[in-house]
Simulated scan of single mutants.
Amino acid sequence: MTARTQRTRLLAAGVAAVSVSLVLSGCSSSKSSEGGGAPNASATVNAVKADDKLVALVPADVKSAGKLVVGADASYAPDEFKDDSGKVIGMDVDLADAIAAKLGLKAEVQDSGFTAIIPGIQSNKFQLGMSSFTDNKEREQVVDMVTYFNSGSAIAVKKGNPNKIDPKDLCGKKVAVQTGTTQADEIKDTRNPDCAKAGKPGIQNDGDKFDLQTDVTNAVVSGRDDAMMADSQVVDYAIKQSGGQLEKLGDTYGVAPYGVALAKGSKLTPAVQGAIQSLIDDGTYKQILTKWGVEAGALDKSTVNGAVS
């Protein structure tokens, strides 16, 4: 995987305009994250108290440090992105804070390139990776994945679809995606082979790949690319923030769960799973998702390494 390059962020927090942040990796199981209310970053969420039974599951070294260091690629709203002050905010950040609180800890969320997060977990730089990772068998070979959200893939184009893009036939088109995502793999492994079988030219360059999702959105708004593919709730958020410059094309598809990534076999894994389930059961989880307008992606049960593909 390539490292991400530093790029100028044209849109922060909920500031409108041309640039919009997007997500990574396509997603979830039985529910779709399509829809949801308008995000409200200033909405309050109930204070989370430590759960003594869960605190007892926290390994001694983590407990003594008093914190969970969390890696997140803060380039795609509403899951994780930077506000005007440069602070990392979003659904995953609020959930990380709540998970840590349940375990009697504080969360320290660090901005990181997406493709550097799992290696960072393996090297002990991060205890958790919360960056819209789809839970799949490939990732479960190298990290534990604790499910916490449902998402799918979606496609967006310029308002009015001036290039008459067909979501079921992107052959020969220029399609923007973020590097290292499920959507990038979908183009390379599924869509372009299907184009070849049909005797059509493939999506150009196996997708026009960018290190930041903000750049993916900008590529479509500016007319550089015909369409973009990303996680469904990120596409929905980008459309809301684009000032009428983008529209969704077709339906959400490929629904699968997101997972919190932890070191393979980590003693912290059952504590994190228990914390997420407790947040689901006491209603805090739903409050956080509603705050960010992604409540349609809520799941009822958190599982460990439950990917089916």
Rank of each mutant, 00 (worst) to 15 (best):
T44C: 02
E140A: 05
I276A: 00
A65M: 01
G71K: 00
S278Q: 09
L128H: 06
E108N: 10
P167C: 01
T115C: 02
A107R: 03
K209M: 10
V272E: 11
K240R: 14
G160W: 08
K301L: 08
T269R: 01
A50T: 15
V234K: 09
A116T: 08
T5W: 07
S242N: 07
D206V: 11
L268R: 03
G199P: 04
D281I: 15
G243M: 05
A230R: 10
P167F: 07
D84T: 14
S266T: 15
A261L: 12
L105C: 00
V142K: 03
I117R: 03
K209C: 06
V308T: 15
A12L: 13
N218E: 15
N46D: 15
D215G: 03
Y237D: 10
L262M: 13
V58R: 00
L170I: 13
K173L: 11
L57H: 01
M229E: 14
G160K: 08
D226A: 01
T252W: 11
N136I: 15
A3N: 10
P193Q: 02
R139L: 07
S30R: 14
N205G: 03
T8A: 02
N46Y: 11
T284K: 05
D169V: 09
G254T: 15
V58A: 00
L105R: 03
T182K: 00
N163K: 11
Q110V: 15
M1C: 08
D281T: 15
K168M: 09
V48W: 01
L128K: 12
Q127Y: 00
Q6C: 12
Y76K: 14
K188N: 10
E247M: 05
A271D: 02
G71H: 08
D206E: 15
L299W: 09
L105T: 01
R191L: 13
T147S: 01
V304W: 12
K102E: 11
D52G: 11
K102C: 08
P193W: 06
V220H: 02
G26K: 11
I203Q: 04
N150W: 13
A176C: 06
S112H: 13
V69R: 00
S302A: 02
A50W: 06
N305I: 11
V294R: 05
A296K: 14
M228T: 14
R7N: 13
G223E: 12
D83K: 02
V20L: 04
G283Q: 08
I121T: 02
D52S: 12
G250H: 05
P59C: 00
D189T: 15
S278A: 07
A176P: 09
T182R: 03
R7V: 15
